[in-house]
């Protein structure tokens, strides 16, 4: 499972140090960066805020799951708790859980084989989250460009006295001639005309 140039930063929460070491190694073998290995407890609150990991791996049988799961709800942090159940073996159940935005589940004994499948699930979760985030950013960007283009168009109309249709055409021509984005053209116009 290739992870892009920026390895995903994982915070590992586990009080069983042998298992934590094993899991940590397995994560690194799969291209993750284990940025912190911390003991469970309420101090997780401040640790997560300080470390800002991309993902958190925690034992389901830790009551601190509630802390992590709630952080994004109450404090607008956005870590991703990756939590794993003891007895669920069924991959489709896990997939369903992840698709719906809940954490995944792990079995008690951590063997290499399982870590791999668990992390696959975790990556699926991560990607889905990223996709959502990108989609949101794209939507925001589109809205932002539309606003800029409108603003530039109106400046051209009011200050240069060109009709709307022509103002737009001129901007599009500039965009194509110079091979730059419409939003950038708009920004240029605004910076010049808004003096």
């Amino acid at each position: 499972m290739a992870v892009a140039n920026n390895p995903i930063k994982v915070m590992l929460v586990d009080d069983d140090s042998a298992r934590a070491a094993l899991l940590s190694q397995a994560l690194q073998d799969h291209g993750y960066e284990v940025v912190a290995r911390v003991e469970p407890g309420p101090s997780l609150l401040s640790k997560v805020a300080k470390i800002l990991p991309d993902m958190i791996v925690i034992d389901t049988d830790s009551p601190d799951r509630d802390i992590l799961e709630s952080m994004s709800l109450l404090n607008e942090h956005n870590p991703m708790p990756v939590v794993m159940f003891s007895d669920v073996e069924d991959e489709s159940v896990i997939q369903e859980a992840i698709r719906s935005g809940v954490s995944g589940y792990i079995a008690k004994g951590v063997d290499q084989q399982r870590v791999k499948s668990i992390m696959n699930v975790a990556i699926a979760r991560f990607r889905e989250y990223q996709a959502l985030k990108n989609e949101l950013k794209q939507t925001k960007d589109e809205l932002e460009s539309k606003k800029l283009i409108d603003q530039a168009k109106h400046l051209l109309m009011s200050q240069k006295g060109v009709p709307e249709q022509e103002a737009y055409k001129a901007m599009r021509k500039m965009s194509m001639d110079r091979n730059i984005r419409m939003a950038d053209v708009a920004e240029n116009i605004i910076s010049v005309l808004e003096w």
Partner: peptide
């Protein structure tokens, strides 16, 4: 105020560590 989640059995610990 800031509201955070702490499991019931960890409240004493959170107080000890001056987290809440």
């Amino acid at each position: 105020v800031q509201i955070v989640v702490v499991p019931p059995s960890s409240v004493v610990k959170a107080l000890e560590e001056k987290l809440i």
